[in-house]
């Protein structure tokens, strides 16, 4: 590991001030950032550790919504929302492996917006709101292409507010070595609206599959999307799978998610 300075603010205000340094990068759970730094794919000179800021951690379950502090680990999300939103708990409990889930955080995952990360699918399908130190951002406005988000330099996520869907499920086809989603689909239904968000497949990162949403809004059943699959152009092609393979998986995973949501 190259030389780096680590600062450990105790409050959000101190963290924002530390991030005013152009060479500073926030350090959340570090489960992506630290390996990335070892490979020199990222080389921040100053890390601002968010782990010691108590106001960023914790889960609040309210009337019809769940608010999760940005520094809440995947393991804590899996445990604490199991009753209120089993689909979100299952997603959090399927990220990486147990040791990674004990460090990795929801805010870190969303700010990174890896095209194969799990949380972006839940946020987009549930139409969650990203809360930052400065403003609130709707899910449809937040994700901005592979590893891109609407966050400004120095702006950090402080929490995420999820409306609790009436029915929801996440179906993930794991890439077995990395345990990222080769393709993952989160389906959420509530108030007559169905949202289908796909991760791991799109070249621009997470996206909504409009055709499936429309079909499922009319008939929320696996047969409603029989024969549907998204256009392979725009899908990721790599050594793990061709664009056509991923497009096929989107259909299969959507069907499985709908079955699970009905179960």
């Amino acid at each position: 590991m190259y030389e780096v300075i680590i600062t450990r603010p105790r409050s959000l205000a101190e963290a924002i001030e530390a991030l005013g340094d152009d060479n500073a990068t926030p350090l959340a759970g570090g489960q992506t950032l630290i390996p990335t730094m070892k490979q020199r794919l990222a080389a921040p000179e100053v890390l601002v550790s968010l782990a010691g800021i108590e106001e960023l951690s914790g889960v609040t379950i309210g009337d019809g919504e769940i608010t999760i502090g940005a520094a809440t680990t995947h393991a804590d999300v899996a445990r604490e929302v199991a009753g209120a939103c089993p689909a979100l708990a299952a997603l959090a409990g399927g990220i990486g492996d147990p040791a990674v889930r004990n460090r990795g955080t929801i805010g870190g995952s969303l700010a990174n917006n890896d095209p194969a990360a799990d949380y972006p699918a839940a946020v987009l399908a549930c139409d969650a709101t990203i809360i930052t130190n400065d403003r609130e951002i709707r899910s449809d406005e937040f994700f901005d292409g592979m590893f891109g988000t609407a966050l400004f330099e120095g702006e950090i996520i402080t929490g995420v507010r999820f409306p609790i869907p009436e029915r929801a499920a996440y179906a993930k086809f794991d890439q077995p070595a990395s345990r990222f989603a080769l393709t993952g689909v989160f389906v959420a239904a509530g108030g007559g609206v169905v949202r289908v968000a796909v991760t791991g497949a799109g070249e621009d990162g997470v996206f909504r599959w409009d055709a499936a949403e429309q079909a499922l809004a009319k008939d929320f059943s696996p047969s409603a999307i029989e024969g549907l699959s998204p256009d392979p152009s725009g899908m990721i092609g790599d050594l793990h799978g061709t664009p056509e393979y991923r497009a096929h998986l989107v259909g299969v995973m959507t069907k499985r998610a709908v079955e699970a949501a009905l179960g």
């Binding site: 680590i6 489960q31 550790s49 040791a99």
Partner: peptide, 24 residues
Amino acid sequence: SQCGACVVHVNGRAVKACTMFALE
């Protein structure tokens, strides 16, 4: 962060000690 040979417990939770700074 793949192999888990470095797993230790921090405040009772299993973590990969190669993917955490000592200062944390």
